[in-house]
Amino acid sequence: MQMVTYLNCLAPGSSAEVVGLQATGFTRRRLLDIGLVPGTRVEVIRHSPSGDPTAYKIRGAIIALRREDSMQVLVLKL
């Protein structure tokens, strides 16, 4: 069962593969720089106690993103 969705829609514990970025300009560059290039595996680690931001494991490092930013990342749920 594979489906394309946005990174912010995944629950903690699930994994996905980056398909593409919908962001442009500066935000796109930053997202690429932290390793969110197509094909990258991302694991959802946890939400902040207040629900947002969410921590993701991206290429070995745990990086937190806000909902506004993670919803620009298209992923394939694994």
Partner: peptide, 10 residues
């Protein structure tokens, strides 16, 4: 508008 936020949890 808030800009992109990234924070590493080492």
């Amino acid at each position: 508008v808030p800009s992109l936020f990234t924070l590493e949890l080492p």
